[in-house]
């Protein structure tokens, strides 16, 4: 018992790592499943980065749509990123974070376009921001915000 108390810091650290790893992996898997499912549902809605070229009379309505999300990294992956910072190279643990954030933002944008009856989104743009400038500093949260926006086009029937 005494030993546990004396190495309390270490113990908490280990618990956080294990918790971060298991909960983080579970949450990520669940998120990816949901992303894949919704992407399939919305696959008919075209999203392009190009400006559309429409003949007069074809477009009934056009409106700006956007979707955004903030995703945070788990404790385990943050440790990996910190270690990676020493050696350099691909920060693999952050890859899935930004990938998830961006796909989720696009999905939310598509969902909002679908509600308005749009059939396509043109001139889509993506931005990522970090909330708080010191994302990887000791006690702050490592998170990423993604925002997707574009012009939703509702066609004449």
């Amino acid at each position: 018992m005494e030993i546990l108390l004396q190495n309390f810091d270490l113990l908490i650290f280990l618990i956080l790592i294990v918790l971060g790893y298991s909960a983080g992996t579970w949450a990520e898997k669940r998120h990816y499943r949901s992303i894949n499912k919704r992407e399939k549902e919305l696959i008919k809605l075209a999203v392009v980065t190009a400006e559309g070229n429409f003949p007069p009379g074809r477009v009934a309505d056009s409106t700006l749509v956007s979707g955004s999300v903030v995703v945070s990294i788990d404790y385990f992956k943050r440790l990996l990123a910190i270690l990676r910072n020493i050696f350099g190279g691909r920060v693999k643990s952050y890859e899935s974070l930004v990938d998830r954030a961006r796909r989720e933002a696009i999905l939310r944008m598509k969902e909002s376009a679908k509600k308005q009856g749009a059939s396509m989104i043109i001139n889509m743009r993506l931005e990522t921001a970090t909330i708080g400038r010191s994302a990887n500093k000791k006690k702050s949260v490592g998170s990423v915000e993604a925002i997707a926006y574009g012009t939703a086009i509702v066609m004449n029937k």
Binding site: A81, R84, N85, V91, Y94, L97, V98, L126, E127, T128, A129, T130, S134, A135, N136, K137, G142, V144
Partner: peptide, 9 residues
Amino acid sequence: ATSSVAQGA
């Protein structure tokens, strides 16, 4: 586009 998800990365 670029972003700074992590310090030094």
